[in-house]
Design a protein around this nucleic acid. Structure first.
Lengths: 257, 257
DNA sequence: CTATACGTCGTACAGTGTACGGTGTACGGG
DNA sequence: CCCGTACACCGTACACTGTACGACGTATAG
């Protein structure tokens, strides 16, 4: 399998796991050796340490000192586990109260909070959340982030679109950072070394006259960042542009309204 | 394995494959039954039809009527094959000459060309190109796109940053579209059905008073698009914001310069 | 003619998610 | 008290992945 998408399981079963029933009486049979929370926490710690691809049912089971198939008594499958992992990560995000601050600062704070999330859990940036895990973690996150956008002068649908746009940018940046980390580890070659190796090889093959702009600007950027791209710089650069774009939207609405 | 990253192989070998030596004399042993191009073309057609996860060495070999291991006489491994696939897709992109047009129209054309790429080859959007395949396809693409940005008044590094920002947005959007398609196929449930199922279930669980903005705006957006998100709308909405953001950058530089 | 380099490909290995069925345990009803 | 039953736990098995290794045949260089 290769689920890298949330809500790939049955909605009813997934929601039942995300919103556990507190009024649960003792069931028949032996007592459970673990709690669902412990499974999810172990999965997140494993993913944090060794990456999402290290979270296999066998490996996670070993971490918890049970057999692989035992996990299936806690969770219907790996797809649902992924939903629980991500919702748990959402639940523990920092949420700064920026009431009264200028809207640009409030959105900056939202971006920063998501950046912290992806910094602590790089695997979270690699998951597609087109169908998000509709648990308490996501709901709290969504409510908090909408409150930062409230009162700017956007209607409900624009609010949601603007938030989606901002979050999508932060996630794309974080994904690039996570990819850079993974590439560095798996290739035993950091970006600078990779860039140097390719630059010297390309110089022998490539005719600069055929690609004048590409050679000039590509080299300039490569020299500046020591690679083809620098994810951290791209984030700082792009974030300002995203906020400038949103400013155009907000100002446009203000003029109309 | 689960490479979803270009340039994961040895740079020298990869570059040798991307820039084939025309002056290649007859080698010893039997004549080759295939050409490298045919392998790459077959791989791309397979990925277009059935998705990147269908491109396994065995499946591709069957498509070409050879044994699985035979492919390894054409390509060192799957990582290098992925580079060749993507560079080939780049090579056949449309490139409209927009010389003389306003810069906003020129960047719109660049975005549109990349949208066409990802529409024809959805798998291309799912690949991380932090270390791009430095072949003739990418070079032609890069040169063309830089020419659209030339003369706006940005310096070399800003040019590269601006292009990266725009392309990153288009790719993120295309990835969302590809994810939506994949989710629809694999879950036998389209976004509208998924949204309806979850909305009715959530209504029984959730306290609207605890999440007032989330329920109001989430419902408004869900009703508007029939799901949590609509990738096509997000693209149209976001593209304008990205261009507005770039406008702020260009105007800022023009004032300074 | 022979040595060698090369194309082709069958088998094997370690890994994945999870279906299936067996075994032991604790509770509910008689 | 006692037994049927629901449940926790888990060993084995299956289909799938990329590719290392080695066997075998072929065409060229010397």
């Amino acid at each position: 399998m290769s689920i890298e998408r949330t809500s790939a399981g049955d909605p009813a079963r997934t929601l039942a796991l995300l919103w556990p029933d507190a009024a649960a009486g003792r069931r028949r049979g032996p007592e459970r050796g673990l709690k669902l929370d412990a499974v999810v926490v172990a999965a997140n710690r494993l993913a944090d340490r060794e990456g999402l691809e290290a979270v296999t049912m066998r490996r996670l089971a070993k971490e918890l000192h049970v057999a692989a198939m035992t996990l299936y008594t806690y969770v219907p499958g790996k797809a649902e586990l992924l939903d629980l992992m991500l919702d748990a990560a959402y639940a523990e995000m920092p949420r700064r109260d920026t009431t009264g601050a200028p809207w640009r600062d409030r959105l900056l704070a939202v971006a920063e909070e998501n950046r912290i999330l992806f910094d602590a859990h790089p695997w979270a940036a690699t998951i597609s959340t087109l169908r998000p895990p509709l648990g308490p973690g996501l709901m709290a996150k969504y409510e908090h982030e909408l409150s930062a956008l409230a009162g700017i002068g956007l209607d409900d649908v624009d609010c949601d679109d603007a938030l989606t746009h901002l979050l999508s940018f932060v996630q794309a940046s974080a994904r690039a950072s996570a990819d850079a980390r993974a590439a560095r580890q798996e290739s035993a070659m950091n970006d600078e070394q990779w860039w140097a190796a390719n630059a010297s090889l390309l110089a022998q093959i490539l005719d600069p006259l055929a690609y004048p702009l590409a050679t000039r600007i590509g080299t300039a950027a490569g020299v500046e960042y020591g690679s083809a791209h620098d994810p951290d710089h791209a984030y700082q650069f792009g974030l300002q542009l995203v906020l400038d774009g949103l400013a155009a939207l907000v100002d446009g609405k203000a003029v109309k309204g």
